[in-house]
Nucleic acid binder design. Structure first.
Length: 503
RNA sequence: GACUCCGUAGCUCAGCUGGUAGAGCAGCUGACUCUUAAUCAGCGGGUCCAGAGUUCGAAUCUCUGCGGGGUCACCA
């Protein structure tokens, strides 16, 4: 596991030894009392100068500019950077100049973590700076940090290799400050949703990740094995069926931020593990759920950006309510000029072929509609839009449409050309549900690896009575990408899945 | 999974039609007590992703493998 040390690493290890020889513990055990942050100083110093005469702050050395007996350095703490001013005779008031000449100048490096005491002032060139009176080494580092420089917004020598950024996210976070902002926004996003849901009185719950039967979505699962029970378990692909059991059990509203796992292809929109927030509310339908999703996501945008308008790539997306609502038929009519609502399967297959879509015999009417929609509409839906009323074949857990045969009461929220949520009036007719599961079994037998399994316990549960319920799943990674203007899912996951690295 | 581009110093990158490597930053030595991509002088640093092949000779050409990005396919 060890690697050959580079020249710079050898030098740092040597510095470490020299520091120890001077009687300095490079990894001291005791706490270092911090009384201010870099951001706080930048924000308040000019107004409250008196409060910054005796400060104590800790962080990482990011740059050093040594000019003989005085030096400037930049310290980075969790809130940002602040300039430090070291003056030899202030650091070392007596005869012994070791702490400046030897320790600071020779043996400290970019990346080392130090604690300092001092007072804040403004330099001749107008930069808020800490005049260091005392410093303490808190952690000696052994590897050189990538040094990213910046001037007037232009970045030099950026740490930009995606592989290194994702594999060594800690470095990415240290060196690329916007990365931190992205992840802070992601947490703000879930906080915002959570507080919305809690305010409505819904209960946050936790349901099994290891499941004997996987269900609630169409996907290939990860399979694992429990030794003591000697049984096959699957990592959940969704938590839908468990949350609905809880509605049967008498909760009116339950939600879960769930890590789900799907054993499928990876792309800039797909990671094998991803997060979904699923919400189920009793006595509601999908129309109500559209209102709820709109309200919640609008609020997320406001909480994150202070406005409903969010820049995403070249577009400005406005989450202000109400969002556009199209039925699937209407959307297809709108984008292709073709009305497929009355077409039989054969005519529709021809229409699809004319649109350049490959149709084969195994595809039913529902699948063809889905294909037409995916090809001609989805990518064009930039502003948040609800697409409603899906073919029944694609939605084995959704209730039949109240007026339109062959359809279910389902909607997806589409934004920036991608699905961000999926919801329906939940199917609560146990006999119908059993029939739909059996259809899925048929598909499975015919080789559809994504077909659902028949879950007897779930059927038993809803035979005890699932109240009319509206449910939704919101893709948290997808929504995070939009809310942080990130082009890749890897940019909103701290540690995206990667092949094993050869260290 | 398919196609395509990429892999050279700690980081970011040059390296033409083949002649065993360069720059900036970082590092080291020295100078400099308000600098800020600090500056100035000097110096070191490489299994050119790995392996095989072609060749007198490969970072460069060919093949295979490994790792990554992008596009497409499956999907959220």
């Amino acid at each position: 596991m060890s690697h050959e040390l580079s020249e710079q690493e050898v030098i740092r290890r040597n510095s470490l030894n020299e520091i120890i020889k001077l009687g300095i513990n490079p990894y001291p055990p005791e706490l270092f009392e911090v009384n201010v942050s870099a951001a706080n100083i930048h924000k308040n110093f000019e107004r409250e100068k008196g409060d910054y005469q005796n400060i104590s702050i800790a962080g990482r050395i990011m740059t050093r500019r040594i000019m003989g007996n005085a030096s400037f350095a930049e310290l980075q703490d969790s809130t940002g950077k602040i300039q430090l001013y070291f003056k030899r005779d202030d650091i070392c008031p007596g005869e012994d100049k070791t702490m400046y000449n030897t320790v600071f100048k020779k043996y400290l490096d970019i990346g080392d973590i130090i604690g300092i005491k001092g007072f804040v002032f403004i330099t001749q060139t107008g930069e808020i700076t800490i005049h260091v009176t005392e410093y303490k080494l808190l952690c000696k580092t052994l590897r050189p940090l990538p040094v990213v420089k910046e001037k007037e917004g232009e970045v030099f020598d950026a740490f930009s290799n995606p592989e290194q950024r994702y594999r060594q996210r800690y470095l990415d976070l240290i060196v690329n400050h916007q990365v931190k902002d992205t992840f802070i926004k992601r947490t703000q996003l879930t906080n915002s949703m959570r507080s919305y849901l809690n305010q409505k009185g819904y209960l946050e719950v936790e349901t099994p990740i290891l499941q004997p039967l996987y269900g609630g979505a169409m996907a290939r699962p990860f399979k694992t094995h429990h030794n003591t029970l000697d049984m096959t378990l699957y990592l959940r692909i969704a938590n839908e069926l468990y949350l609905k059991r809880l509605i049967v059990g008498g909760f009116d509203g339950v939600y879960e931020f769930a890590k789900d796992f799907r054993n499928e292809g990876m792309s800039r929109f797909h990671n094998p593990e991803f997060t979904q927030m699923e919400l189920y509310v009793a006595y509601k339908d999908y129309n109500w759920m559209m209102d709820t999703v709109e309200e919640m996501v609008e609020r997320v945008a406001m909480d994150l950006h202070g406005t409903t308008k969010v820049q995403v790539g070249d577009n400005i997306i406005d989450f202000q309510r109400p969002w556009k609502r199209y039925s699937m038929y209407e959307a297809i009519l709108h984008f292709t000029g073709i009305d497929i609502s009355e077409m039989d399967e054969k005519t529709m297959a021809e229409a699809a072929t004319n649109l350049g879509i490959q149709v084969d015999a195994t595809m039913g009417r529902g699948k063809i509609i889905d294909e037409i929609f995916g090809e001609t509409c989805e990518a064009k839906l930039i502003q948040p839009t609800f697409i409603t009323d899906y073919p029944v074949e694609m939605s084995p857990l959704a209730k039949k449409h109240r007026t339109m045969p062959g359809l279910v009461e389902r909607f997806e929220g589409i934004c920036n050309g991608k699905e961000i949520c999926n919801a329906f009036s939940e199917l609560n007719d146990p006999i119908e549900q059993r029939r739909r599961f059996e259809e899925q079994l048929e598909l499975g037998i015919r080789g559809d690896e994504e077909a659902m399994m028949l879950d007897e316990d779930f059927l038993r549960a809803i035979e005890f009575g699932l109240p009319p319920t509206a449910g939704v799943g919101i893709g948290i990674d997808r929504l995070s990408m939009i809310m942080t203007n990130s082009a890749s899912i890897q940019d909103v996951l701290f540690f995206p899945q990667m092949r094993a690295e050869n260290l």
